[in-house]
Design a protein around this nucleic acid. Structure first.
Length: 429
RNA sequence: CGGGGCGUAGCGCAGCCUGGUAGCGCAUCUGCUUUGGGAGCAGAGGGUCGCCGGUUCGAAUCCGGCCGCCCCGACCA
């Protein structure tokens, strides 16, 4: 992709509406534009990141045995009356009527919807377990949206739902998701701490929030310092171990009964990027999702729900990975892997070397954004650092003449000069 | 929802106190020069001063109402 043709409206200065670093950088890097409070349009660069994050989530869900579906954003109020949540949810739920005067709502979550689908088609324990998820836009009419896409009203969320015959199966599903979440966040380059959490509107009695630590985090969190050395690759054995180490959000943390010695207790701020719940038969009983067991007994299925804030992750990753010059994308979600900088557009040798490099990278299936604009070097460096692509290939007139290119790593700032072939080999790996 | 702040060109801001018909930087367009970390000079275009009403000969400026956005808190995932 050539930057001269790409829609990338970067801002040199911080818009005053944006206060925290991820919000500023997303606006400056031309990733999003605000439509109204807590509602955003995603521009090409932002969309690429959003979709890449969604793809990582999707791959890990599929690997964990879940199946993707796609449920509507708009739901009938009637469904929520059946679960008893229609009145309980309050003003956070966006409600309206269609032309037939039927009460509708823009879904803030989908427990009712998935349970209805499930109950209409599954009648036997033999069809269990099942775990269905979708990645869909949600709307919660927050009193006070803030922090850019991290606390928007409209947001993209992966929400999954498990169905089991009994508690033993449900807990197994829960732990399976627990592990899948550890893997997902690790792939996104994040260290997420699972914490005991409140079950809120969803209800239920077993719940973990996955939090990443950041000064701009919304909630205060407390945890055993054992989590500070948490770096090992996720493994099934870690589930029980991590669930046994103390970590809790402020609602769940009680200094009086906290089992962790004061000198081991860490206190920080966290951004919630995932939340899993076991809630048993809360919705299956209310909505009549009943299956018949091996002994002929009929019981409501045991369920849990599992959310990951996909659009929130875009901001959260930036909070966790940036410097004074801009964003530093982890490879797994970077909108392009390589930023190719032509330092002197119009110079025959430069143009040719850059054209060949772009073509070679594309052939090798390495995504590349080629800055072919007639701009000064400084502006190009600044833009490339701002948008945070992991690698920069820099080609100036002298290097082009000599058949050399410069390779710069955005994260470390390390540069080296090498042949185009050698650079290609490094980037294609 | 309580408290606070802000709305003036695409972005960042000044002007408002003390009314006289709008200005600066960046960005944009043209030309020349420049060319490895957001260039220089010269010129040009671009604004219902958030909206409605009031006061006044005259309102960006004073008064009233409304709307929007941001921050702190409460709330929430």
């Amino acid at each position: 992709m050539r930057l001269s043709e790409y829609f990338l409206p970067v801002l040199r200065e911080n818009p005053q509406e944006a206060q925290i670093v991820s919000h500023r950088l997303m606006l400056r890097a031309g990733m999003v534009r605000q439509s109204s409070a807590g509602i955003y349009s995603w521009l090409p660069l932002g969309t690429r990141v959003l979709l890449r994050i969604a793809q990582v989530v999707r791959e890990e869900m599929d690997a964990a045995g879940c199946q993707e579906v796609l449920m509507p954003t708009i739901q009938p109020a009637e469904l929520w009356r059946q679960s008893g949540r229609y009145d309980g949810y309050g003003k956070e739920m966006l409600r309206f009527r269609d032309r037939h005067d039927r009460e509708m709502l823009y879904g803030p979550t989908n427990e009712e919807q998935i349970t209805e689908i499930f109950r209409d088609s599954v009648k036997s324990y033999r069809d269990l377990p099942k775990n269905l998820y979708h990645i869909q836009w949600k709307f919660r009419d927050e009193v006070r949206p803030r922090f850019g896409v991290m606390r928007g009203r409209e947001f993209l969320m992966k929400d999954g739902y498990s169905f089991d015959w009994d508690y033993v199966g449900a807990k197994k599903s829960y732990d399976n998701m627990f592990l899948a979440y550890l893997k997902t966040f690790a792939r996104l380059g994040l260290v997420a701490i699972p914490m005991r959490a409140d079950t809120g509107q969803i209800g239920g009695d077993l719940s973990h929030e996955f939090q990443i630590l950041a000064e701009t985090g919304e909630s205060e969190v407390f945890y055993d310092l054992a989590f500070d050395s948490l770096r090992a690759a996720p493994h099934p054995d870690m589930v029980a171990e991590l669930q046994s180490i103390y970590a809790a959000t402020e609602e769940k943390h009680d200094p009086a009964s906290c089992p962790v010695a004061p000198e081991r207790l860490r206190r920080a701020r966290g951004i919630e990027i995932g939340h899993i719940f076991y809630f048993g038969t809360k919705y299956s009983a209310a909505l009549g999702a009943i299956v018949t067991g091996p002994d002929g007994e009929q019981r409501p299925v045991e369920s849990g729900s599992y959310g990951i804030g996909v659009s929130r992750l875009v901001g959260a990753i930036i909070e966790a990975s940036h410097d004074a010059n801009g964003i530093i994308w982890p490879d797994s979600v970077a909108p392009f892997k390589v930023g190719l900088i032509n330092l002197k557009a119009g110079d025959a040798a430069c143009d040719r070397a850059c054209g060949e490099m772009e073509a070679a990278l594309t052939r090798a299936a390495v995504s590349v954004l080629h800055d072919d604009r007639d701009e000064r070097a400084g502006a190009k460096f600044a833009t490339m650092d701002l948008i945070g692509l992991p690698w920069q290939v820099i080609i100036g007139p002298k290097a082009a003449q000599a058949g050399r290119v410069e390779l710069k790593h955005r994260k470390t700032g390390e540069r080296q000069e090498l042949s185009p072939e050698a650079a290609l080999q490094r980037l294609a790996g």
